[in-house]
């Protein structure tokens, strides 16, 4: 407070030191990278042939397709239901096997828990390979290996789940607090004891979350795997579309939607109940 009265707020708050700039000026290399990235994006728009006109011209065809699909044909509901059940069975078993096999793989891919650096890099590499190859390619591979049918699809979903869960399980275990693990090591627990008593319980919420997302993902994937002969409802949808049986295709799409919605709701319920 000065003798002349209170200092105006703006004057009192003015710093004597220079303010840092609002934005950092990029270096020459960073600026070049930004320009190249922007140019590539513009080229990507060109390469993807995005066309508003084409989309607008296509809208009447879409409307026509919807009209032809209505009303859905329920005459083949029994075989469609059977195929849908098979689809879900593939997703469930593929996910369960994938989750079970992901656990030891993820332990090996966790730096703190892996028995040897070579095992760590091998496990990380395997998980990356499982993740980068799309499930449809795995399905093609297993169709050739074990023949047409749901077994090939189940194996494809299992491997895809191992890639997905292996990565997230390992990350969840990397993030667990080291304190309880140190306490168990200090009292003479074995490596398996530390993992099962301290690491798994700590990472369990993440495990459950990831496994349930895997089930949702596998349910959606299992629909598509039928297109390459790996079992499930996908082949029913393809045949219906190829034969212009749009009302039957509508029934199949509604059934798929119901299944995916049901699995998502169930998964959400379980997530809230368990975690």
């Amino acid at each position: 407070m000065t003798p002349g009265g209170p200092i105006p707020a703006a004057a009192a708050a003015r710093p004597t030191a220079a303010l840092p700039p609002r934005f950092e000026r990029p270096g020459a290399l960073a600026f070049l990278i930004y320009v190249v990235a922007l140019a590539f994006f513009v080229l990507a728009i060109e390469g993807s042939r995005i066309s508003v006109t084409g989309f607008l011209e296509g809208l009447p065809h879409m409307g026509d397709l919807f009209v032809r699909m209505i009303p859905p044909d329920l005459s083949r509901i029994a075989p469609i239901g059977q195929a849908l059940l098979e689809t879900f069975q593939m997703a469930l078993v593929g996910t369960a096997l994938g989750v079970a096999l992901s656990l030891p793989l993820a332990v090996c891919a966790t730096s703190r828990l892996s028995p040897h650096p070579a095992v760590y890099y091998l496990a990380r590499g395997l998980i990356s390979w499982f993740r980068t190859v799309p499930d449809l390619v795995w399905a093609l591979f297993f169709v050739v290996t074990v023949g047409l049918g749901p077994f090939a699809g189940t194996l494809a979903l299992m491997v895809d789940t191992m890639g997905f869960c292996g990565k997230f399980f390992a990350e969840a275990m990397e993030e667990t607090e080291p304190g309880p693990q140190e306490a168990l090591s200090a009292l003479g627990a074995s490596r398996s004891g530390v993992i099962c008593s301290a690491v798994f319980p700590a990472a369990l919420p993440s495990f459950i979350n990831t496994a349930l997302f895997s089930l949702e993902k596998a349910t959606r994937s299992s629909v598509v795997l039928g297109l390459v002969g790996a079992g499930g409802i996908g082949i029913e949808l393809k045949v219906a579309m190829d034969l212009f049986e749009y009302p039957t295709a509508a029934t199949i799409i509604i059934c798929i939607f119901a299944l995916v919605l049901l699995v998502e709701r169930l998964s959400s319920y379980l997530r809230h109940r368990i975690i």
Binding site: G179, P180, A183, A186, G188, A198, A202
Partner: peptide, 21 residues
Amino acid sequence: LRRLRARVGFVFQKHNLVPRL
């Protein structure tokens, strides 16, 4: 080493219990 550690308790400042158990 584990057998020897088994004969020695260690109480930590931050308890280090497994939280969810």
